[in-house]
Amino acid sequence: MGLIDKLISTARRRSPWLLHFDCGSCNGCDIETLACLTPVYDVERFGVVNVGNPKHADILLVTGTVNLRNREVLTVLFEQMPEPKVVVAIGACGLSGGIFREAPNVVGGVDKVIPVDVYVPGCPARPEAIIDGVVLALEKFREKSKGKGEGK
C-alpha cells in the first residue's frame, strides 16, 4: 500500500521485537533466553528488543510445557500479537513436553495449542541455539510479511 506501510514493514523486519513467555518450563530455558539478551550473547546487536507487551511483539518465544491453565494465557498472548507473527518453541518441553510429557497436568508441546514456526531443541537449549532459532524465525517472518503484502 502506501509508503508508510512499507516503511513499517521494513522496520519490523530489520528490528524484530521479542516477547518471551514462560509456559511452565523448569527455568533452564528461561535463563538461557535471558542470557541471550545480556552482554555475552547480546541479541540486541541484531536489533532484537525484548518487550513485555504482546501488542508490540513480532516474535513469540515460548519455553516449557503447556498445561491446562497456561494454555489459555498462551492463546491470549498469541492472539494479541499483530500479524504477521512467528512463534519459536524452545527446549524439549516446548517441542513435545519433553521429560514431563506423561505427567498428569501436561498437555504437551506448544504446537498443540498454537502453530509453531521454529523448533529449538535442547534441554535447556543453548543461547547459541536460541540465536539460531531467532535467525530462522526472522527468515520465516520475512516470508510471512511478503505473503501478506502480495495478499493485499
Binding site: D22, G24, S25, T65, N67, R69, N70, A103, P104
Partner: peptide, 14 residues
C-alpha cells in the same frame, strides 16, 4: 498458582 504445574511427583509411578 497453577501456570507452571506439571505434576512431576506422579512421574515416579512410570
Amino acid at each position: 498458582f497453577g501456570y507452571v504445574h506439571r505434576g512431576l511427583e506422579k512421574l515416579a509411578d512410570i
